[in-house]
Design a protein around this nucleic acid. Structure first.
Lengths: 237, 237
DNA sequence: GCAGAAGCTGGACAAAAGTCCAGCCTTTGT
DNA sequence: ACAAAGGCTGGACTTTTGTCCAGCTTCTGC
């Protein structure tokens, strides 16, 4: 009797899971709001009624699918974090590795890149998705913190959020970039490397820059050079 | 006769414009895909048939509304660019000013913050919106380039894209941030200031950092200090 | 085998949304 | 004033969508 329910549940769970994955595909392709019972059922290759059988409503289906996305992402990134922990690669190499994985790797063939942004936008309207979206960002931030630490940043915790924001912003922009100038992992890697510079600095040097940037300027341009006033390298090319 | 059509057209244009603005409100509130004829008509306080009278289809209405958003943003930012050109404020002040304007100012009362992201996501699916989204980003990039130049960056053109991506990423994350830790213009300003550091550097110093970051590391952390081995500014003063 | 229970689905239905048009209303030239 | 010329809209029609349920299928314990 116990085994009965167990077997049935196992099949049901598989079916349910397939529906959620199909829903993620549809969300990626058409957007959350345009994801209908019929579209999901067709994508999963099941009869229409299946979606209402397994899920209380279309909203529940959508929300659960987006939550699945978050847990899948977490699992995927955990592996990358493991790989990064304790590496002795250079910061530039770590950035490149990181960028490649973020931009390409995914449990599904195609990146489902838009799903993440659909989740974020939907979360700003549906309280029930807020937590999922926040957890998604938190996952990325944690991984990024590991990467920053691995790359030798003394301010990994402080900087991780910014790296994630930068990567997300570039990813979003990339989703509609002109095809003759697509965003590549190399672009992302270069961008992350730029942002890494202030987070690779020691506290003192960073503080000196802060001071420097708060000073009112007289001329039309910041004189090139280091924060300490007596340094002039890079000026007057 | 000419004046007849002119008068009518003037009224029609006003009406049309009101519909587009109402549509932007609805898009912000519910999302592009959930924006219906009925919702727009209600928001604009006009009969249902009005929306189909002025627009060929719901898609045309949506797309035109999003394009209006872009031109409005361009107009808004042009004013900010004018203000920034030729300022002698410090980079930190410029970043703060910039952040405040980006985060708060808007032709409409509420920021319509989500509209921008709706546009981006929609543009990744509808070719007809691609150009608008690209133009939107280009507008932000141009403004940012002015700001970077005003702040004295020797690499304004190169960096502008990254600043826009960072700002967008933070804005997106902020749209669903927990209410007890909201994203403020101050956060944005601080983030932009961090990213400004590598773009405030002179070419030589920047190159030295690039070299430094490409070197394999032995230890567990980057030793604080400057990239050029013989430069020690900012370190242990 | 078989009875019963649970899983599943074909098909139907109400609600919601996009679109259309016949005719009302406002404007205007005379 | 008045009739012609559009602008505008009430209302209806069609399509799409979410949801439900009666009944068929499959599985299990005996």
């Amino acid at each position: 009797m116990a085994s009965v329910t167990k077997v049935r549940r196992a099949r049901g769970e598989r079916r349910r899971r397939e529906l959620l994955e199909a829903a993620l595909d549809v969300i990626d392709q058409r957007g959350v709001q345009a994801t209908t019972h019929r579209a999901v059922a067709e994508a999963a290759g099941v009869p229409l009624a299946t979606t209402t059988y397994y899920f209380e409503s279309i909203d529940h289906l959508l929300e659960e699918a987006l939550m699945l996305f978050v847990t899948e992402e977490a699992a995927r990134l955990r592996a990358l974090a493991e790989r990064l922990r304790g590496t002795t690669a250079s910061p530039a190499e770590i950035a490149a590795d990181f960028a490649r994985e973020l931009a390409e790797g995914s449990p599904w063939e195609r990146p489902l890149k838009r799903v993440q942004f659909e989740l974020y936008l939907e979360a700003s309207r549906r309280p029930r998705l807020r937590e999922a979206a926040q957890q998604c960002v938190a996952t990325y931030v944690e991984l990024t913190e590991v990467a920053l630490t691995a790359a030798g940043s003394p301010r990994a915790a402080e900087g991780a959020r910014l790296f994630v924001a930068l990567a997300d912003g570039l990813g979003l922009h990339g989703s509609f970039a002109p095809s003759d100038r697509p965003h590549t992992p190399a672009d992302l890697s270069a961008a992350l490397t730029e942002l890494f510079i202030p987070f690779a600095m020691g506290a003192d040097e960073r503080a000196a820059w802060a001071e420097r940037l708060a000073e009112p300027r007289g001329g039309a341009a910041v004189a090139g050079g280091a924060p300490a006033a007596d340094q002039t390298h890079g000026r007057g090319r």
